[in-house]
Design a binder for these strands. Structure first.
Length: 402
DNA sequence: TCTGGGGTCCTAGGACCC
DNA sequence: TCTGGGGTCCTAGGACCC
């Protein structure tokens, strides 16, 4: 049976949500009807467009444009600040509304999600009718519009929700891929960014259809495995599941653009310290520890580079993170003006204990740890090593460890 | 008045072990 | 003295997404 997947995407999320916030607080008009953008703080050197109204979009203003260039495109552009706390609230309201119908929802970002309709179709009927119904429900109860894409997999549902905006429902079923998707510019394909698009255009691949029919050998030569994946995507093939349980983050990072470029290592230490506190707090909130600390720098030419260090024992301590970060910074220091600095914790684990010596007498070993240890041994030496042991043998093993 | 911050995934090369 | 390859781990960097 074909799957039915919906992708729900808030139209101009940050701008729509800010519009609602302003209206709620007595603002005289709806910024969705103006030449308006949500912008970063210029005084902090973050002057870029985060979201734009449809009117502003029509003048060619794009997300991530500098506010300067956005104003070049529209002299009387209105710029409003972002309000992340409010955005999170609105986001939560949206997902709560949708979870009335099913819990098979995958939250993809603050303003979009996938919904697996396959199993609830018998409850709610035709998916197109359902999509229109919840689109209206969202508009009437929450006050903002969404686009909904309907397809037989996540990739096509996402592509479909990107068709004509705003406030629309589109389908992109298997049998519509050639007519609806093949004519699109190859850069419109999810997963094809600026660089890949350029490379593709160089070999005369201009549309998604061109990519779908591209020569495997050529694609492999130029893009390796990614090339083969790209062809599959262009043909609308995607087997990935709607993952509706809470996804554990793989890493935790914070970075900051400095008010001015900084020339010396020593001046960066205070920033490194406060970043350590930030990521430390976040990782402890999740009861996790990190095996890897990464320091990222961006120089005044916007070149980014990073160094990392793997730890023997994972950590969640501010001081430890800070010390390691300082040491990494020294190692990577190139004596050039620095615009941005960041710390990231990677390879997260829920357990602080990594290695247990089999002959260590005073390990406070519990079953969880034993299981983890077994997993590690199995991973390393092949699954049969421990699987074959009987339960009794396992107990014996456990006892010996004690 | 130049150009954010949070992520994920992939690749390539070197070290190291068997 | 000479010569493998397979596998894993680690690091750096790149591309992409919202």
């Amino acid at each position: 049976m074909d799957r039915i997947i919906l992708h729900i995407d808030v139209n101009n999320a940050f701008l729509s949500w800010s519009a609602l916030y302003l209206l709620k607080n007595g603002f005289p008009y709806d910024i969705r009807d103006r030449y308006a953008v949500i912008g970063g703080d210029k005084s902090k050197r973050k002057g870029i467009v985060l979201a734009k109204s449809n009117k502003a979009k029509k003048l060619g203003i794009k997300t991530a444009d500098t506010l300067y260039s956005a104003k070049q495109k529209c002299k009387n552009l209105e710029i409003y600040p972002s309000n992340y706390e409010w955005y999170l609230k609105m986001s939560k309201q949206l997902f709560n509304l949708l979870s009335k119908y099913t819990n098979e929802i995958e939250i993809f970002s603050v303003d979009e999600c996938f919904l697996d309709y396959t199993n609830i179709k018998k409850l709610y009927g035709n998916e197109i009718t359902f999509a229109y119904k919840i689109k209206e429900e969202i508009k009437n109860t929450l006050g903002f519009t969404v686009n909904i894409g309907i397809a037989n997999n996540k990739l096509c549902a996402k592509m479909a929700s990107d068709f004509l905006k705003p406030d629309n429902v589109h389908t992109l079923y298997q049998n519509e891929i050639e007519t609806k998707m093949y004519p699109l510019d190859v850069g419109d394909l999810f997963g094809v960014g600026k660089k890949t698009k350029e490379k593709l255009k160089n070999i005369k691949i201009n549309t998604i259809g061109d990519l779908a029919n591209a020569d495997y050998k050529t694609m492999y030569r130029l893009f390796k495995n990614q090339g083969v994946e790209l062809i599959k995507k262009a043909r609308g093939i995607d087997d990935s599941l709607v993952v509706y349980w809470k996804v554990e983050p793989k890493g935790i990072g914070n970075e900051i653009t400095l008010k001015e470029d900084i020339m010396t290592k020593e001046e960066l230490y205070p920033y490194l310290f406060s970043l350590s506190e930030h990521v430390g707090l976040r990782i402890r909130k999740q009861n996790k520890y990190a095996y890897v600390v990464v320091v990222t720098l961006k120089n005044n030419h916007f070149k980014r580079y990073n160094h990392q260090r793997k730890l023997a024992n994972p950590t969640s301590s501010d001081e430890e993170i800070y010390k390691i970060a300082c040491s990494i910074l020294s190692e990577m220091w190139q004596d050039e003006p620095i615009r941005l600095i960041g710390i990231r914790l990677d390879k997260l684990t829920t357990s602080k204990i990594r290695q247990i010596s089999l002959f260590d007498k005073d390990t406070s070993l519990n079953v969880d740890v034993l299981e983890k240890l077994m997993d590690e041994i199995n991973d390393k030496y092949g699954s049969q090593v421990i699987k074959k042991a009987s339960t009794d043998q396992k107990k014996l093993f456990h006892k010996r460890l004690k």
